[in-house]
Simulated scan of single mutants.
Amino acid sequence: MSVRFDRVSVSYGSQTVLDAFDLAVEPGEVMALLGPSGSGKTTALRAVAGFVTPASGRVLIGGRDVTALPPHKRGIGMVVQSYALFPHLRVDANVAFGLKARRTPRHETVERVARALEMTGMAAYARRYPRELSGGQQQRVAIARALAIRPEVLLLDEPLSALDAALRSAMLTELARLHRELPDLTILYVTHDQIEALTLADRVAVMDSARLKECGTPLDLHRSPGSEFTASFVGGANLLPVSVSGGTVRFADAELQLVAPGLTDADTATLCVRPHRVGLGDGPNALRGTLAEVQWRGATHRLVVDVAGHRVAADVTELRDPPAPGTPVTVHFAPQDAVLLTSGPVREVARG
């Protein structure tokens, strides 16, 4: 089932928390709404759920305008951060709650509860209370409850934020498996964690300050971000001020070679290159500077190099004996690994 935000705005008093939000989610797609706290992503989700009323614009589900419909008539399931399980009900009763509210026949309720628990790996815990479950298990029960009503749209509001790193990784795998089993289920996934968004989503809508900044596939947003905000928020990046003149790009004293067709002259622009694409030593697009900082990150060392007063980060693998801070060093990057950013409108990256 498709979901469409048609220039949806939401305000609380004089504060606009969602500003002319325009986004189309395709049937069966996993769309992540990614952004920092206060970016408007949860408000967008609540507008789909019917928990907030837009000041302007429309919300459409399956092409039908549901802006004025109450939540229970929208055919959606929702999982929130706190899971919101009823502590006095066993797992199976929690999962059956929505079905009973819809007056689903008892035999059908039993079948749907059993199926939802099986899909989420919680069938063996049907008779336990929430207090007898781990955080990850409670999260699975909340998802099972949302799936039991057989929604066409599933809304997930930072469902993994309360889990530790190991559980979060495991649950991402489970959510991906779940969507493979339910390919027609459309999922809107709100998160501030870029790893969750990049791992799970077909497309990512990057939000900030109540507005949509950019939307595209995880790969496109990571390789070719369209703005400095996206570059820094999705994956982290070196953002270096450069000048463009006569088709030549310069940073500090270095003339750079880029794969950037159609360059036009500009007083300044911003070069984006990911730290894992920056190597140590001579090579194409060599930048010479002084090592300012060394951070060991397990699989890599992050070297932070001062180049003409700008910090350039390089994530280097298999570096047994990193140079000491204060050492003159050279770093480099390949022409195809850098993107030149200029200001412009919100970019919609084609799916693929």
Score class of each variant (00 low, 15 high):
Val273Asn: 03
Thr330Gly: 01
Thr264Met: 03
Asp267Val: 12
Arg250Gln: 11
Gly326Pro: 09
His332Phe: 04
Ala324Thr: 14
Gly281Asp: 13
Val307Met: 02
His332Asn: 14
Leu280Phe: 02
Pro328Met: 03
Leu263Tyr: 02
Asp265Trp: 04
Asp315Lys: 10
Val249Phe: 04
Ala308Thr: 01
Val305Met: 05
Ala308Gln: 02
Glu255Thr: 15
Thr270Asp: 03
Ser245Arg: 15
Glu293Lys: 11
Val273Ser: 02
Arg274Thr: 01
Phe333Asn: 06
Ala252Leu: 04
Thr300Pro: 00
Pro322Leu: 10
Pro322Thr: 12
Ala313Met: 11
Pro325Val: 15
Ala314Lys: 08
Pro261Gln: 02
His276Trp: 05
Trp296Leu: 11
Val259Asn: 15
Val331Tyr: 09
Asp267Met: 00
Thr317Ser: 14
Pro284Gly: 10
Thr248Asp: 01
Pro284Ala: 11
Thr290Ala: 03
Thr248Asn: 00
Ala260Gln: 12
Val305Arg: 03
Arg311Lys: 10
His301Thr: 15
Thr330Val: 14
Pro335Met: 13
Val273Arg: 01
Thr268Trp: 05
Ala299Gly: 13
Ala314Phe: 07
Asp321Pro: 00
Ala286Ile: 06
Gly279Tyr: 04
His276Cys: 01
Leu303Pro: 00
Ala266Met: 05
Leu256Pro: 03
Ala299Leu: 10
Gly247Asn: 07
Leu258Phe: 10
Asp253Pro: 01
Thr327Ile: 13
Pro323Gln: 05
Pro325His: 15
Thr317Gln: 12
Leu303Ile: 07
Pro335Trp: 12
Gly309Ile: 13
Ala252Tyr: 02
Pro275Gln: 11
Pro335Gly: 11
Arg277Phe: 12
Leu263Pro: 04
Pro275Ala: 10
Asp265Val: 08
Gln257Ile: 09
Val259Glu: 15
Pro325Trp: 15
Pro335Asp: 11
Gly298Ala: 10
Gly246Phe: 11
Ser245Cys: 12
Ser245Val: 09
Val273Tyr: 00
Ala254Cys: 01
Glu293Ala: 08
Thr300Val: 13
Pro323Ile: 05
Phe333Met: 08
Ala313Trp: 01
Leu256Lys: 06
Gly247Ile: 05
